[in-house]
């Protein structure tokens, strides 16, 4: 799998409250509607103008804070192709895999990329291709690959239960 998109770039420790504000957690329950609020307290330019296929680039500890899965769902429903970061907070990491949102840990690519540039992620080769060079990332562990191949945790659980 290969995806190409335009970069939205952010810094370190972007937390789930600014990705999907807590005040919406019980008033916005439709996943499609969640997409409208993505990154509302971080970057209103993104909230207004992000296009399907765009790619988010973040610093270290992306998605720290609350366990709210809507912080993944809202990005996925916005049509974002993937998140490349220097690192992910652990609950966010699991939530992203469970929702089937591709995430890539590649600090060198994060350094090389700027807002508005085009980036390609080649998952088969485990590489991020930028105008400043091509950078390798560690592929998902084998047990996680099964999750991704099945399209996320829920289809994976269904399959494992023979449903």
């Amino acid at each position: 799998m290969k995806i190409t998109g335009k970069v939205w770039k952010y810094g370190n420790d972007v937390n789930t409250d600014v990705i999907f504000p807590g005040k919406y957690t019980y008033t916005v329950s439709d996943p499609a509607e969640m997409g409208q609020y993505a990154l509302e307290d971080l970057d209103q330019d993104f909230t207004k103008n992000a296009k399907p296929g765009d790619i988010i680039v973040g610093g270290k500890n992306w998605g720290c804070g609350s366990s709210r899965e809507q912080a993944v769902t809202c990005i996925k429903m916005r049509g974002i192709g993937a998140i490349i970061a220097k690192g992910f907070a652990r609950i966010y990491y699991r939530n992203a895999l469970n929702e089937g949102l591709p995430i890539v840990v590649c600090p060198e690519a994060v350094e090389a990329l700027e807002k508005g540039q085009e980036v390609t992620i080649d998952f088969d080769k485990s590489q991020v291709v930028t105008s400043k060079g091509t950078f390798s990332f560690t592929p998902y562990p084998d047990f996680v690959k099964g999750l991704i191949e099945d399209g996320g945790l829920i289809p994976h659980v269904k399959k494992s239960l023979g449903l």
Binding site: G65, S66, S67, R68, E69, V72, I91, R94, N95, N98, E99, G152, L153, I154, V157, S160, L161
Partner: peptide, 28 residues
């Protein structure tokens, strides 16, 4: 809930997980 780690005060191994993961745990 991310603050599930609180129960470590009583010697439990406790951690926060997301909604899909909890649904999976309820099922399996």
């Amino acid at each position: 809930d991310s603050h599930t780690c609180t129960y470590g005060a009583f010697g439990a191994f406790s951690t926060g997980i997301g909604r899909s993961e909890m649904a999976g745990a309820w099922a399996t």
